[in-house]
Design a protein around this nucleic acid. Structure first.
Lengths: 208, 208
DNA sequence: CCCCGCATCAACCGATCGGCCGATGGGGCC
DNA sequence: GGCCCCATCGGCCGATCGGTTGATGCGGGG
């Protein structure tokens, strides 16, 4: 007897990529794409309706909720989510794993690895792309400084180009507090100016 | 008689995306993928060797030369380049067109549009995704301020988080000159702080 | 040849930033 | 209860930034 095919739900905001993945996965007899979603909301709804074995999830979804949030909601229902994305920054990886992703694959991976990861994910087994695995290990060894929620708030305002006074007003705190937070942010990010902090924030995708 | 198929060279640094496009384009009888490249250098070499009718080019290529530079070199040999990418910022569009791209499509486009654009590009006809076309038109009507080369130099240093003195030293000019340039950069970008300038620069992908 | 855009520089000044000290209070954990 | 993390605030000071005005030289286009 042959095992039943793995039922897949695709989620990617790029129609061409979805179509490409659909065509690509169509070449594997034991993998069946049962649905496509172009947004996080759609993916959450379809996952609940179709209860696929695996949701293939991109993290960058343009409008609406992002891939991490979609992953969190879908994973909470017990459906396995395999993240398939372009970026491998610490922030993205950490958030996805924390949200309950079963695996984390890069689009740069070879297609065979994707197939294998899908089959693994269907059984709840974790697969990580080598670069991703490396970063996870490095993170375990030397936990990088993580910004607190409040510090992220400050950083978000800073990335709008606001001065300390405006940040203070926007967050209903005093200017002194803003400066205190900024000092710690500089420390954690390894910079010593606000421009540098913004650069790192954008580079590392620390902000939504 | 049937026309000979359009011969395509794929260029994208993500293996999964390449495989997806390959499978997708395989469904069209009159489109034949004759080669794949995972880097700009590879694309330039293969384009010269295979002389395809159309090169399908992503702009973000990770290591090595970027998609714009690859487009410039390939277009210079008379081969049509159809840009297929995720981003639709003014800077990307402008650079790609200026580099000689025959068309500019977004990955969010429907697959049928991609097929049509490929056939058009094979005959040298231009196709632009609607959002891209909009931006081009808008740019014609009200030409946005363009940063000069020197201003981009300053902005690049600024994005490293350097202070005025360090920027001056890095570029072998006086601190006063740096401030003058920064003032004009603020003007053109519509900001009034260095943090804001860095934010816009990263957002608009003004820097390589 | 003259004008204009671009890059270069100077001097000045008020506002802001960054670094430093220390302090309080709440919440979770053992 | 004690401990630690986090967020909150204050004050001080030197360094830096942002804005302004004005000036020089160089190159291209009309």
């Amino acid at each position: 007897m042959t095992a039943p095919p793995v039922r897949i739900l695709l989620c990617d905001d790029h129609a061409v990529v979805r179509a490409g993945l659909l065509a690509l996965l169509g070449s594997e007899p034991d993998i069946e794409v049962v649905g496509e979603a172009g947004s996080g909301e759609e993916a959450v709804a379809l996952a609940a309706k179709l209860t696929p074995d695996v949701v293939l999830m991109d993290l960058q979804l343009g409008e609406g909720i992002d891939g991490v949030e979609a992953t969190r909601r879908i994973a909470a229902t017990g459906v396995h989510v395999l993240v398939l994305t372009t970026y491998d920054t610490d922030a993205d990886i950490t958030r996805a794993i924390e949200a309950g992703a079963t695996g984390y694959l890069l689009k740069a991976e070879r297609p065979e690895e994707l197939f294998a990861a899908i089959r693994s994910a269907a059984q709840g087994r974790t697969t990580l792309s080598p670069p991703v695995a490396s970063r996870v290990m490095a993170r375990m060894r030397k936990p990088l400084p993580t910004l607190t929620d409040r510090e992220l708030d400050i950083l978000a305002q800073l990335s709008q180009g606001l001065g300390n006074r405006d940040i203070a007003r926007a967050l209903f705190i005093s200017e002194a507090t803003v400066k205190t937070h900024l000092g710690r942010i500089y420390d954690k990010l390894g910079v010593d100016t606000r421009a540098g902090a913004v650069a790192v924030a954008k580079e590392q995708r620390l902000l939504p």
